[in-house]
Design a protein around this nucleic acid. Structure first.
Length: 156
DNA sequence: GCCAACGTTGGC
DNA sequence: GCCAACGTTGGC
């Protein structure tokens, strides 16, 4: 029984189209520096879990595609790289702080934009729509997942 | 660029 | 362990 997730990506960093151009259409989900979001990747995700690929911090925020968890968790290599903006001086390969998974594109969808999401009462319980939610990774229930897919079909 | 929310840090 | 200051997120 797979679980489901919503994962935010800034299109300036990695958009759904960028993901589609990557080898195997797979990206390591680097740069998460929030413990709750890390714990989801490190402790709860399984290969094959469904992912709603969400564009954030951009002109048109919203769900831009479907993806899936494509690896077991492993330490985020950027935490060890002094040149990286995600470098963490308190982390070491012996004691990593930050973990990630690879995420693989399933398919790009029509953009289900934030405004549309808010206008659909059946999506109102999505954590990402809760006031002041800033978590970059949020769990999605199987029922919510079905309702999002239905909403995506209706705009296709 | 603004600003509200909220997680993290660090002095005590 | 408290809590004020600070930094970040992210929609607008």
């Amino acid at each position: 029984m797979p679980s489901y997730w919503l994962m935010k990506s800034e299109p300036d960093e990695c958009s759904i189209d960028d993901l589609a151009r990557l080898p195997n259409q797979t990206v390591p989900w680097t740069g998460v520096r929030n413990y709750q979001a890390r714990n989801f990747m490190r402790d709860a995700m399984r290969v094959g879990d469904g992912v709603l690929f969400y564009h954030s911090s951009c002109a048109q925020p919203g769900i831009a595609g479907l993806a899936e968890v494509a690896s077991a968790p492993y330490p985020d290599p950027t935490q060890f790289d002094p040149a990286s903006r995600y470098h963490d001086p308190k982390a070491s390969p012996e004691a990593p702080r930050w973990w990630l998974v690879d995420v693989r594109l399933v398919r790009k969808t029509r953009l289900l934009c934030l405004k549309d999401m808010r206008e659909r009462p059946e999506l109102a319980d999505l954590l990402v729509l809760k006031p002041a939610n800033r978590l970059s990774i949020t769990p999605v229930t199987p029922d919510q997942w079905r309702r999002v897919l239905t909403a995506l079909e209706s705009i296709a």
